[in-house]
Design a protein around this nucleic acid. Structure first.
Lengths: 411, 411
DNA sequence: TGTGGCTATGCATACGAATACATGCATTCG
DNA sequence: CGAATGCATGTATTCGTATGCATAGCCACA
């Protein structure tokens, strides 16, 4: 979309031609159309013409161009300036009407109503970009979750949105799919596109990287996960080490299982090792032995759980009880075991972690450790907004969100 | 955060004091601190001072203030101007180095490398707000889905993000939860915060409203749903009327069911009535009667399906086969029926619509009509980007996405 | 040696809104 | 009745970037 100033289209008066416009081989029709008409030196119209504009050309009695008006202007969004013109006031006055909180500046009732009428008539909407550029605030927070397909994160997203909307903030949701590359991409995007705050579930990101991306710009951050501790970053965590410990204990003491397997995840997915540690602690405490063959890794997804179960099946032997470090994998594992004719929980008991909606769909219903994702989301968002709204620096805070064992039928 | 220009803090020379600053009862320490030092008329520093800035004040031999320097400046993000200063070039030159595509403007290798080094050293990142304000493009598209908890939408979101990332666009995801209010809110947000394009799954929005929000600004839009037809708006649809028709036919001819129930949704949720229509067409075509008692409404969610099933159970009689207009409700219904001791499919057969992942978790596995949400997402995004990138207007296009009957165990 | 062209860069401005500062007028106060 | 004050508004500037236009230096050509 070439833009041409009317003045640069003038032909017979070289002094108003820029070198650029002489040299350009820009030969579009409007330039030619305007060229046919002489223009007085100094005539300058503020308008820009796009390639597909229809121009209406006015000339004076001597044949000089006096006005070139767009007849087919692609309707541009009205600005405060348009509103101001229509209301017969200045642009800042419009701004003041809109931002009543402007330090005690009064606007007369009459002006206010005229401005509001003009806004209404033009359908004016403030341009958030311009406002943000000026105020250095975007009224936007960014949320990065680890897996949009995992029902665990939905209530978190909802809760964050609820809190944000209440404060008139928008939420930019992003989904990392547990991939380091996506996490980094998120940080990059967010550090270029200023947001006022960040909530995230970092899996692979290191403290150093997070500091790198957000420390410099002082962007408030709150995160889910107990593996990171950073100055000035609020953390919400669930004590999953203890949760798996207690759940494993329960399986041992209440259900009498002694022969365990574990479906975990790679070491670079922090909650996995932590949960395994709690599991292992209980096993060791009871002096049970743990057969390394029964430790298999998945990827937090249903298919990963299914693959892990296939691995176990192929190994020939099965543990009596299987602790799976999240529900999605637990479900994948159960379905695979059942397909292979293995009875759950009679032959293999399965314990999950999260309590996502699907845990109540599968038969047998999944015994699992329930987290409270809505609570997590609310805590994350509240902490962030406290930071956003606080005048004074707030010391790092750590919030624990509760979890509890939900006993159903699978273990 | 009060900002004070150094010049307005001058005390002994009234002529440089603004009326505002004389009158204001702003008595913060920095104003006072600077006031103690005389300033020559005309001295003006470009810097703004925040309340918590530490100032380093320099005076000349006569005791006049010559310089006020921030010592504790909260590190601001560097701008092109900072880069330019460091590299010893002008700001536009930096801009040109960054945007190599700038119409054939050449930059010498030496300058380029100096600029790049400065960028590296300062950790400069372009400010997307400023860029967008200038270019009128945001490199962002907005996506509104109807229910983040419904697995049907996840592949759509992923596909849209995949396409967008490939073109270096960001995606703003929003979730309407099927609520009209949220849909309108989305439109308002998006029409204030300019995005380059919009993809949405409008449920309640009317063509008139959509035209109102996006028509004026010429924002390219593509939508999922066959109930809307708008000039210049691409639509992807699944022929769900026909899909339910065929599936119902199949239940009649292949399974021999004659006595049907239907769990639908309120008339203002368009896909519902459409699906009911296809269902009804098959029923009528085979001359079967349809007992109105067996038509119950839900809300597209699992709990809605459960509630609908409870209504049916309470009514005393049950149909032999139940067509549920989406999987989430179908699953809710099956679980409720099973809880009540009803055998699925032996007493009541259940057919769903969508084929979400949960359809394979529930037992019996859900017989359903599979849509291809990834395909839908790809089509939506491709259509949008074609429009975004096209120089010339593109006529309205309508894409059909395939669906197919997936026969499992529930019907 | 002047003219024109090219290369590499600088200068000025615009995007839309918020805000520091200025001002005209009416009011108040001594 | 003049000076200070407050109200309602206008003017100028700013945010960070992209870009239209200008220009300095060089080279080629006549």
């Amino acid at each position: 979309m070439t833009r041409i100033h009317a003045k640069s289209c003038f032909f017979p008066l070289p002094q108003v031609l820029s070198t650029t416009s002489i040299r350009s081989n820009n030969r579009d029709k409007h330039q030619i159309a305007i060229r046919a008409i002489p223009v007085r030196t100094g005539l300058y119209t503020n308008a820009n013409y796009d390639d597909d504009d229809q121009l209406e050309l006015h000339t004076d009695e001597n044949g000089y161009l006096t006005m070139a008006k767009k007849t087919s202007a692609a309707m541009k969004r009205p600005t405060m300036y348009d509103v101001a013109k229509l209301a017969g006031v200045s642009q800042p006055t419009v701004s003041r009407v809109l931002n009543e909180n402007d330090t005690a500046v009064a606007i007369s009732e009459e002006t206010r109503s005229r401005v509001l009428a003009a806004i209404e008539k033009l359908g004016y909407r403030p341009n958030v970009l311009a406002r943000s550029l000026r105020t250095q605030r975007t009224q936007t927070i960014a949320l990065m979750i680890a897996d949009i397909s995992n029902g665990f994160y939905h209530p978190i997203a909802r809760a964050v949105q609820d809190v944000a909307r209440q404060r008139d903030y928008e939420v930019l949701i992003s989904n990392s799919d547990h991939l380091y590359e996506n996490e980094r991409h998120f940080c990059q995007v967010v550090s270029r596109r200023p947001v006022d705050g960040v909530i995230m579930v970092p899996i692979h990101l290191t403290e150093h990287e997070i500091e790198d991306y957000f420390g410099k710009t002082q962007t408030p951050v709150s995160m889910l996960g107990s593996h990171l501790h950073m100055e000035g970053v609020d953390v919400v965590y669930v004590d999953d080490e203890r949760a798996t410990y207690e759940a494993t204990r329960w399986m041992i003491t209440e259900r009498g299982y002694r022969d365990f397997g574990f479906i975990g995840v790679a070491d670079d997915l922090p909650p996995g090792p932590r949960r395994f540690h709690g599991f292992r602690r209980a096993i060791d405490e009871f002096g049970l032995s743990f057969d390394q063959r029964f430790y298999v890794e998945g990827d937090f997804k249903m298919e990963g759980g299914a693959a892990a179960a296939r691995t176990l099946l192929q190994s020939g032997a099965l543990p009596r009880a299987l602790f799976v470090c999240n529900d999605l994998m637990a479900i994948g594992a159960i379905l695979t075991l059942q397909e292979a004719g293995v009875q759950v929980p009679d032959q293999v008991a399965v314990m999950g972690f999260d309590d996502i909606p699907e845990a109540r769909i599968i038969r047998p219903m999944l015994t699992t450790i329930a987290q409270d994702p809505r609570d997590i989301g609310l805590k994350l968002a509240s902490a962030l907004f406290e930071r956003l709204e606080s005048e004074t620096p707030i010391p790092t805070r750590i919030f624990e969100s509760e979890r509890r064992l939900v006993i159903r039928d699978s273990a």
